[in-house]
């Protein structure tokens, strides 16, 4: 009976997500991130490098409207570093006493500055394509950081006979293979403070991990709590089963 029950449970769990796979299968390359697995955490150095890539490259087009500068303390930036990062941008505030909007340097409590005032402005500046917001992009794409890294390293020449739309680029891992964004990363585009060589591979790994953190900032706390709770429940289960056995002993 127990077998049957677990089979039913497993069956339901195995089928549901598998059922979502649709259309042409695109296989992502094998990669490992520090955040993989049930004990995975965010490699702070890599996430910080990833933030640098986002800040210097991606943020020119992609917003992260759900994040605030103060959140960066979670990836190991100091209070001063955060103040400096925030003060580096001008944010709109107001209205002041005269009823005027004004610009001021950012504060840690401010949201990440958005590169465009609104979606229409973003489209106009990007050949009609809307650069998606990156706040939860790792949760919003099948494969999460693995997909992001694959996409960033997946630019190549279109195969023979493939017709590319006007202003489009060929990408192995993008659904439909036609992506409006040109290859965003070039070797040595950023200069890492820790002297990690800034290859496209390295930068895409770092930024993918950074985006994973941005989408699931609770991940480490969640997994730590989960391990404790499952262990606790394991012990409780043994105890409860013992009590049940003892109570039922006189019946058989």
């Amino acid at each position: 009976m127990r077998m049957l029950k677990s089979l039913v449970l497993l069956g339901a769990m195995a089928i549901a997500p598998a059922a979502y796979a649709a259309g042409e299968e695109i296989h992502l390359p094998e990669t490992r991130f520090s955040s993989d697995g049930i004990f995975g955490t965010f490699d702070r150095a890599s996430v910080q490098r990833g933030f640098q890539v986002y800040r210097e490259v991606c943020s020119n087009c992609h917003s992260m409207r759900l994040l605030s500068y103060r959140n960066l303390s979670e990836i190991g930036l100091t209070e001063e570093q955060i103040r400096a990062v925030a003060a580096d941008v001008q944010v709109q505030d107001g209205p002041n006493d005269e009823g005027q909007m004004f610009e001021r340097p950012g504060r840690p409590s401010d949201r990440f500055r958005r590169p465009f005032a609104n979606d229409a402005a973003a489209r106009t500046a990007n050949n009609g394509a809307l650069p998606p917001d990156f706040s939860v992009i790792a949760k919003a794409r099948e494969g999460g950081p693995h997909y992001i890294q694959a996409l960033l390293t997946g630019y190549e020449d279109p195969p023979a006979g493939f017709t590319l739309g006007d202003g489009m680029n060929y990408n192995r891992y993008f659904p439909g293979h036609q992506i409006a964004m040109a290859a965003p990363l070039n070797p040595d585009q950023v200069e890492y403070a820790d002297h990690t060589p800034a290859t496209v591979e390295q930068m895409s790994r770092d930024v993918a991990l950074f985006l994973h953190w941005a989408a699931e900032p609770e991940l480490e706390q969640r997994r730590q709590m989960g391990i404790k709770i499952v262990l606790f429940l394991g012990v409780l289960g043994v105890l409860a089963y013992g009590v049940k056995r003892r109570i039922w002993a006189d019946l058989h």
Binding site: M225, G226, K244
Partner: peptide
């Protein structure tokens, strides 16, 4: 109670991992 603990274990695995 025994079933309940098993239920919570499955639940916890889903929620936390």
């Amino acid at each position: 109670s025994v079933g309940l603990v098993v239920y919570f274990i499955v639940f916890a695995i889903l929620v936390f991992f």
